[in-house]
């Protein structure tokens, strides 16, 4: 996480402390942010463990314990053997929850890896070069933005086919527009600044000015939008998997809600409760951290505070 939170800054606003370090200091000062970081650290660790365990079992070619059915142990309430109980096929809810964290993490990371580079690149190009390049960028982003979001996601997932690939592409291809617009606006603002004019006067190439000088000063926008995109991506994945379009045969959180929903009417509450609390904790942590990060990174707000 820390690598993303400290964008390399070639133009420190204060001479003594770098912008990134200053932002990090502001962030760390608040106990709420620290709690959020702790929650996210746990989430990432669980997801990485889930990834490793999944890789291990598929390499050994053994049915992993979260898929192993045990019909004698159906609907066990939380207890010593199964901390979070078992589901309708006798599978441990805790283990499935961890695997769900793996899938949610995957979706958040991969869809951001599609959306953010795409949005940053197009936003930078449009904002910096202007003219027909900008017209083209604005046209593409307007077009994507005018298609109703959820239906677009569903349509992409349908065309690409059921499975996580469709989920990655659907979320990635629909969310880059927001990043692109924010970055473009920010680049437009930076373009007129003195340091850009100075760099141009020194005869630097467009590529160097754009990616070495302007980009470090606008990348905080991408960092903030990453923390806001991530929970949104998790929400969309849950939605798609719930509808049976997302993860196939894997214990994704959406699929768990889908199966737990029907058993709720029989009084089996623990599966739904476990998933609900997990999603809530992760999304809340991301939302709060996103707010804190925006406050820490946005220079405008510092002036307002002082």
């Amino acid at each position: 996480m820390s690598a993303e939170l400290t964008p390399p800054s070639t133009e420190p606003p204060q001479a003594s402390v770098s912008f990134g370090r200053e932002a990090w200091r502001r962030l760390w000062r608040s106990p709420v942010s620290r709690a959020c970081l702790a929650v996210l650290a746990v989430f990432v660790l669980v997801a990485l463990w889930g990834e490793a365990a999944n890789a291990w079992y598929s390499w050994k070619d053994v049915t992993p314990p979260w898929q192993a059915q045990n019909l004698d142990a159906r609907y066990l309430a939380p207890g010593a053997g199964h901390w979070l109980g078992t589901d309708g096929l006798g599978r441990d809810v805790g283990l499935r929850l961890a695997q769900g964290a793996r899938i949610a993490f995957q979706v958040g990371v991969v869809s951001s890896l599609i959306a953010i580079p795409l949005g940053v690149l197009l936003g930078c190009l449009g904002g910096y070069f202007g003219g027909w390049v900008d017209d083209l960028v604005v046209w593409i982003s307007n077009t994507f933005a005018s298609i109703p979001g959820l239906l677009f996601v569903l349509a992409i997932a349908m065309v690409v086919g059921k499975g996580l690939l469709g989920v990655f592409l659907a979320i990635g291809l629909t969310t880059w527009v927001g990043v692109c617009r924010l970055i473009r606006a920010e680049v437009l603002k930076q373009k007129g600044r003195g340091y850009v004019r100075a760099a141009r006067a020194l005869g630097f190439s467009h590529r160097r000015i754009l990616f070495h000088h302007i980009l470090p000063n606008v990348i905080h926008v991408a960092v903030v939008s990453f923390t806001l995109r991530f929970p949104a991506a998790i929400g969309t994945e849950v939605f798609l998997s719930f509808l049976g379009i997302g993860a196939q045969g894997e214990p994704s959180w959406g699929a768990m809600i889908s199966s737990a929903r029907l058993r709720l009417w029989q009084g089996v509450w623990w599966e739904l409760a476990a998933v609900t609390v997990s999603i809530f904790a992760v999304v809340l942590a991301f939302n709060l951290l996103g707010d804190a990060l925006r406050d820490a990174l946005d220079p405008r707000l510092h002036i307002a505070q002082d």
Binding site: P231, G235, V238, F239, F242, G254, I257, R261, L264, W265, L272, T276, I279, F280, V283, L284, N287, L288, D291
Partner: peptide, 22 residues
């Protein structure tokens, strides 16, 4: 508000239907 934002949409529907309707 931040709390409301963080509860998954599906959960609202599932719990709402279960508690208030059923």
């Amino acid at each position: 508000c931040v709390g409301l934002m963080s509860v998954n949409y599906l959960v609202w529907i599932v719990i709402g239907q279960y508690v208030f309707a059923y």
